[in-house]
Amino acid sequence: MESLSKRAKVLEKKPMTLAERAYLPAIFQGLTITMRHFFRAATKKQVTVRYPDETRPFSPVFRGLHVLKRDEQGRERCTACGLCAVACPAEAITMVAGERKKGEENLYREEKYAVSYEINMLRCIFCGLCEEACPKAAVYLQADKMAPPRFERDEFIYGKDRLVEPVTPDNRSKRGIQLTPEQAEKLRTQLQTA
């Protein structure tokens, strides 16, 4: 049959030579190869990352665990418009909207806010479309945090308690809006009085 690619090589099965049958030359060839690796491991930098001691750096565009940001005064930015839930291809986001009461102005930025906001991390595909859809710059996928493994399924449904950015002003994610030291100080006093 005519070969289509003309790349097939015809291999002749020759009887082994004495050197091949004696094994020893091949064995020494193998031994030199492994010895080369031995000295490389002993001298050059090893490729192994010793995980708990050192971690591989995340890519700057890595999309990890979500965070619901606060604004400069520490108020929640989310207005529960639902655009992220609509954008989500995995239908991982659900929320319940509520109206801001009087005296809650320091907690929520607009009149409407999310009473509950849940992301199912088992459904989420970490595509980042919610981040793109958000008109209030409220939801972000952090570049330095992953959704950790859990034992129970319901522990993967992250509510506001785990999503909203911590109010301590120093404990902020790397992306999104950062507070200046003055703003952080202001927020701290506000939180103490509230």
Binding site: T34, M35, H37, F38, R40, A41, A42, Q46, V47, T48, R50
Partner: peptide
């Protein structure tokens, strides 16, 4: 074994 296999 580790060194021969480029491990730690």
């Amino acid at each position: 074994a580790a060194f021969l296999q480029d491990r730690v």
